[in-house]
Design a binder for these strands. Structure first.
Length: 567
RNA sequence: UGGGGUGUAGCCAAGUGGUAAGGCAACGGGUUUUGGUCCCGUCAUGCGGAGGUUCGAAUCCUCCCACCCCAGCCA
């Protein structure tokens, strides 16, 4: 863990609380936990929570537990347990030996429930699900007490034991905490704490027929693990009184506190399991790791580095107000890290053939190129040059606009790490005027890209030798939705999917790229000079190169050109 | 007056009675063999609104407004 935790941490309300707890001696260490439910893939929103919980533990010299919140066997699967661990690890965090499952505590939790029964603070309720809802009342009207609320302690014990042994059908009974049916907070109106589920659990198999609810299990698990600060999202604020109630009523080994922070929303995408699963299952994207998705595995495949995601999470801060973070923030974090660490390679996305007419036909030569101007230690490589090369179509104009520094008839530019070339002619298509091929002369004295007479050129182009290049498939990704907040806008139309960007993926084939690319392993992150940061897809191989574009480079020419067009 | 929350720049966000940090974006300029990077500069007389307390208020008080969450045997 480097990079982001070196910087002095930005203050936030949770750090303020921890600082107080530490100076007042309320705690001597900080124990947090990341508690995913293993029922889906992690996304960038989870990354914020992971960075917060593990980051705090790291900064304060404490610990962060990875705890799977597996209290609902119907929804949870072992498959997700593995992917979540992989993602947390990939992000760069280490839980050491502290890997836990709520299901580890099923026995303790059960015993706590019996404690409540013995104290007359819990009872078996045999109302149907609909009846329980009716008895709960509404937001503005108080609820009514269940007729089963006055069962004797012995009867409750016997019934709960029967529930546990699987003697009753699902839905026939539940165990409820006996709190207050008139409480203004609905969570306190005798909440269900155990329900009968005859389902096989991914870890405990068929050992149990009753499973604790989140409200009952979560805080007690925190207490059992000695968690000091239990961080969750805002929608659990209403659950805090209940969280506290269980801890106050039961003989717990420690006293954790719950604090709530606002979950992150990212512009032009969606971050809810329900919506993500729709996109995957209905085929709008090609899987959980589709590079257009904000899932951790999608971002990984897209080419984001773990450090860039950590920096992003650090930078957006932690607060309690609802926020929609701008995509440019994530892109900035990606460029910042990738600029420092990714090797440069040349590749042409939209090729235009250039013939260097005064370069000997049979010749070729090797030129030296630096791998990363930001990091000399990354060394240099050889790039082959020859009479026929490809440049980017957009780097040539027959009628260049003002301030266009690239190639045009009669213009001289530099080929990066190679020579100065001057355009002396071209072939255009009959009728359309489309440029098919360009002819240039090179200046042999400018080898390497500088002129002995001190002559300057304003443009530098990337290029690839036609005789020595490889071909690659290049996948250009764009924002998944056409609107910043598809969830909110979906209220105006029928469905958030109406706002999907139909051009979020553009596939380019046979793009000429430096042969050097074949030396990189799948998953490698590189910069295609002047075009952007790319990642070799998992399906890429030296024989079939596939590049995924992570993000473009900033393009001030595109901005200028747009401005010129408007003036 | 059901209960619980939140409002500081286009976006994120510090600030906790002493005169509005920082980042992203944007806009100027410098350096540059990536129109990249880097560097320099500009960007809230203003903190949801209105009153009040105070020598002094984004911070304290009062009222108001807007938005979010809650009626799963989901988490």
């Amino acid at each position: 863990m480097t990079d982001n935790h070196k910087d002095k941490a930005v203050s936030n309300f949770i750090r303020t609380i921890i600082d107080q707890d530490l100076t007042q001696g309320k705690h001597s260490t900080v124990i947090t936990r990341f508690p995913p439910e293993p029922n889906g893939y992690l996304h960038i929103g989870h990354a914020k929570s992971i960075c917060l919980n593990f980051g705090l533990a790291l900064d304060y010299g404490g610990h962060c537990n990875l705890r799977f919140d597996d209290t609902n066997p119907i929804k949870e699967e072992a498959e997700y347990v593995a992917s979540i661990q992989e993602d947390v690890q990939w992000l760069g965090f280490d839980w050491g030996e502290r890997l836990y499952y709520a299901s580890d505590y099923f026995q303790e939790l059960h015993d706590f429930a019996v404690c409540l029964i013995d104290a007359g603070k819990a009872y078996v309720c045999s109302l149907s699900q609909e009846e329980i809802r009716e008895f709960r009342g509404t937001l503005k009207e108080p609820g009514r007490e269940s007729p089963y609320r006055r069962r004797s302690i012995q009867e409750n014990r016997d019934l709960f034991a029967g529930m546990r042994r699987g003697e009753f059908p699902e839905g026939s009974h539940v165990l409820r905490a006996k709190i207050d049916m008139t409480h203004p907070n609905l969570n306190m109106r005798d909440p269900v704490i155990y329900r009968i589920l005859h389902a096989e659990h991914h870890r405990t198999g068929n050992a149990w027929h009753v499973y604790p609810t989140y409200d009952f299990a979560h805080g007690l698990s925190d207490a059992l693990e000695g968690v000091t600060h239990s961080l969750c999202s805002l929608e659990f604020e209403d659950h805090r009184p209940l969280y506290d109630w269980f801890l106050d009523e039961l003989p717990v080994p420690s006293r954790p506190r719950q604090y709530e922070f606002a979950r992150m929303n990212l512009g032009y995408t969606v971050l809810s399991k329900r919506k993500l699963i729709q996109l995957v299952q209905e085929g709008y994207v090609q899987g959980w790791d589709d590079p257009r998705l904000p899932t951790i595995c999608g971002l990984r495949r897209r080419g984001f580095s773990p450090a860039s995601i950590r920096n992003f999470c650090e930078r957006i801060g932690v607060g309690k107000s609802f926020s929609l973070v701008d995509m440019s923030m994530l892109e900035h974090a990606a460029r910042e890290d990738l600029n420092r660490h990714s090797p440069r390679v040349m590749g042409v996305l939209d090729p235009l053939r250039v013939v260097i007419v005064n370069y000997p036909k049979a010749d070729e030569e090797s030129l030296e190129a630096v791998n990363n101007p930001e990091d000399p230690e990354m060394g240099v490589r050889e790039v082959l040059f020859s009479r026929e090369i490809y440049i980017e179509k957009e780097d040539f104009r027959t009628d260049p606009p003002r301030k266009y520094f690239r190639l045009a008839p009669g213009r001289e530019v530099r080929l990066r790490y190679a020579y100065y070339i001057t355009c002396v002619g071209m072939v255009t298509e009959q009728g359309t005027g489309k440029v098919l091929e360009v002819y240039c002369r090179y200046d042999p004295k400018t080898r390497g890209g500088s002129s002995p007479d001190g002559r300057k050129v304003k443009g530098t182009l990337h290029w690839v030798s036609a005789d020595h290049c490889r071909r690659a498939e290049v996948r250009l990704y764009d924002r998944l939705f056409v609107t910043a907040d598809p969830t909110a806008d979906a209220k105006k139309r029928s469905d958030f999917k109406e706002y999907l960007n139909e051009n979020s993926l553009e596939v380019l084939r046979d793009c000429p790229v430096e042969a050097e690319l074949a030396a990189f392993e799948a998953g490698s992150r590189i910069q295609l000079e002047r075009k952007g940061y790319f990642c070799l897809d998992y399906d890429s191989s030296p024989d079939k190169l596939i590049l995924n574009r992570t993000v473009t480079l900033r393009d001030s020419w595109a901005k200028l050109e747009k401005k010129l067009a408007h003036s």
